[in-house]
Design a binder for these strands. Structure first.
Lengths: 339, 339
DNA sequence: ATCCCAACAGTTTACGGTATCGTTCAAGCG
DNA sequence: CGCTTGAACGATACCGTAAACTGTTGGGAT
């Protein structure tokens, strides 16, 4: 059987209340008793029972994070940030993958609610929002959306400044002397739209025309990102006016695009420049290191965690916010030909 | 405030005991009352408080999984398998990344213990085992090691049959008519040793000599796997007797190795065949699809989950086991030249 | 000497759910 | 008609912890 407060108390001839007080740092215990207790607690490897504590206090000092998959590298940094924010305040973090399944996502959220987590962070791919809206209204616990924002959710969101992503990528290509810049837009999401907006803004600001035929969408959404980038680029290269710069929605698409160009004997970066997004550590060490938009995932997670903690803390300066993280360009060989 | 049993009871003029019984499927409640309760429970969106339940029953119907990182794609399938096993028995699963940090790993385990999970599954990169041994001895809750096995831990382990991995990869290259087969061994782990063993076995069985200079270790362990595969292969190609087959510890190393060969104008698979390990979905769609050893991650997770559940269940046919999953070869272009 | 108040420790009660046993009441039986 | 029986539901105690309160010292101020 596990060690309980009572056991330690009996062992030291104290009441369990005294042990509890020591462990929670109450001040009305003599230093000597404190030391004795702490020593025995360590010896017996006492681990507090959060269930019991939570029952009494209504708090578990634990936050829950639901994310679509544990296989995505860029989520790792975000989780790290959240964990760091949580740890700094003595909070634990537990995670649950939803396997990109809406129904399962709901079940996981319920598991977390059953476990009485103090706040819920959600990276959701869902576009339907009724479930979340209900939760927000019921005000059971703070809800923070991370990285992805279901349509309709405007508050308690920490994500990427997608307009800036589009603008920075495009601006960089313009500085690389690219005149015809293509945008391989990814999924049909609000984020991709925002980036398209930044892309157009950058073109406009530099007096370049926006040519809608250079914004290409994938034909086969079920294909891998690599394939989709590859095929889209093959199509671009078959047309008359070849692009001389390509920005892709993701790194994987950019790599596919580069391989397509290489297969057509296009020289990179002399004839064509490429910019990805995500700054995936795996990909930057490939043959032609890819210029990419770095998403400060750790910072993103940190802010999200802090937002959640502030919301737990209550009203004191914690009204619903919307935080957008500014991206950062990382120059590599795929675009530094004519910079 | 959250809905409690008491609220539902008051609402229906019943005692909370009755509600509890209905929800746990006790039989001494009339069908009519049952229906009334269930209806109201759904309407009020009652979510049980596991904390309270666990306090009384000693169970949370929840398992905890600690893994080094959430960024590794191959862990995704494993988690999915565990979750499936858990779900089938009405168990929840919560996950926690340790960020490959031993100290943090311990803290996460303690968080799980505080939350009173019924079993703990661990994917640990740690080689030191004292902490785990202590836990196993103290017999607080079942402990199952998944995918990686800390040295010294022999029981309750579900992992990959690494000897088979080495053998199958090597045998395949032999069938591809390769005569000089190199093994790019990865980290200095027991797993890499086991694969080397399988590699030697396969060579012996087919009457090929084991040449120790064809088993190469990385010079720069801090580099990315891609780079390490690349550089190791460059070195191999500089020697007199070039290998005509290469098996790598991981897919990423294999891709690096292939790129090195390509950069030296070696034709793949005509002049040189490559086999990776992991069967990463991202990589199989690259220019030269990579033959790889598929690890049935989902099955692995499933077995691990079942093992944990059996251990929770108690003595009935659940003594400590050691389960090794057989790998499977997936042939692709990187090796099908002379098959 | 008396009172008061730190400083310290113990008691009581409550959290939300569940195991166990008890109660009620109508039906069935000899 | 008294008794048993059993279905349907309720009362109580308890799980491990914590808040709020109650005691018990002993020492300094009055």
């Amino acid at each position: 059987m596990r060690v309980r407060l009572k056991d330690i108390a009996k062992d030291l001839n104290l009441s369990k209340m005294t042990i509890s007080k020591v462990l929670r740092g109450q001040t009305d215990i003599s230093d000597e008793t404190k030391a004795r207790v702490l020593k025995r607690v360590k010896e017996l490897k006492y681990i507090p029972n959060i269930s019991a504590s939570s029952l009494r206090t209504g708090q578990t000092k634990t936050m829950g994070l639901v994310l679509p998959s544990i296989g995505k590298p860029h989520l790792s940094a975000i989780v790290d940030g959240i964990r760091h924010a949580a740890g700094a305040q003595g909070y634990g973090l537990i995670v649950s993958p939803s396997q990109e399944d809406a129904e399962y996502e709901q079940r996981q959220i319920e598991v977390f609610l059953s476990l009485q987590v103090d706040a819920l962070l959600i990276v959701s791919l869902q576009e339907t929002t009724t479930f979340f809206e209900q939760m927000q209204r019921s005000k059971s616990i703070p809800l923070v959306f991370v990285d992805h924002r279901p349509a309709g959710i405007m508050q308690n969101y920490v994500g990427l400044h997608d307009v800036e992503v589009g603008r920075i990528a495009c601006e960089h290509l313009i500085h690389c002397a690219c005149k015809r810049i293509a945008y391989l837009r990814g999924p049909r999401t609000a984020a991709a739209d925002m980036r398209a907006k930044g892309y157009r803004q950058a073109l406009n600001e530099h007096g370049l025309a926006v040519q809608s035929d250079l914004v290409v969408e994938s034909m086969h959404p079920e294909e891998s990102e690599y394939r989709r980038g590859y095929e889209a680029t093959v199509r671009l290269l078959q047309r008359r006016g070849r692009p001389d710069g390509v920005m892709a929605y993701s790194d994987m698409m950019a790599v596919g695009a580069m391989d397509a160009a290489i297969s057509q004997a296009v020289r990179i970066p002399e004839e064509m420049c490429f910019v990805g997004c995500g700054d995936d550590a795996l990909l930057c060490s490939m043959r032609i290191p890819l210029t990419s938009i770095n998403i400060a995932g750790r910072e993103l997670g940190l802010k999200a965690g802090q937002l959640a903690l502030a919301a737990i803390g209550g009203g004191n300066g914690s009204r619903p916010q919307r935080i957008l993280i500014k991206p950062r360009l990382v120059r590599r060989k795929s675009s530094d030909g004519h910079c």
